[in-house]
Amino acid sequence: MSEAHVCKKILVADDSPTMRSLLCATIAAIGDYEVIEAVNGFEALRILPREKVDMVITDVNMPDINGLELVRFIRSNLQYKNLPLLIVSTEGSERDRQKGLSLGADDYLVKPFDPDKLRAFIQKHLH
């Protein structure tokens, strides 16, 4: 990572440490990105205004606020209107997927997620 090259920042919000480290490892294999980890929704809320993130990847089931609420918050905020937003969730039902997408998430992956789909999403939105 050279000094001159500024990495795109990806915020990963998931309360499972294993899932976070998997996402980080997968993202690291995809390219040179800076991953900022949030261990719950509150932390994500705090990181958002502080770090200029280029993408948010969030879980749905988190203990404090759920991922859908996070998506709704992000989309209701003008400054994050175009922030690429990916939900990675264990909730596989069509209803949840529709909810996530209608709140403004750009895509919805079901765990266990396919790393190629994650790659495609990141490459589509961060290039």
Partner: peptide, 10 residues
């Protein structure tokens, strides 16, 4: 149970 399902699938 839900978290366990997610991570073990991975």
């Amino acid at each position: 149970a839900h978290s366990l399902k997610g991570i073990s699938g991975m």
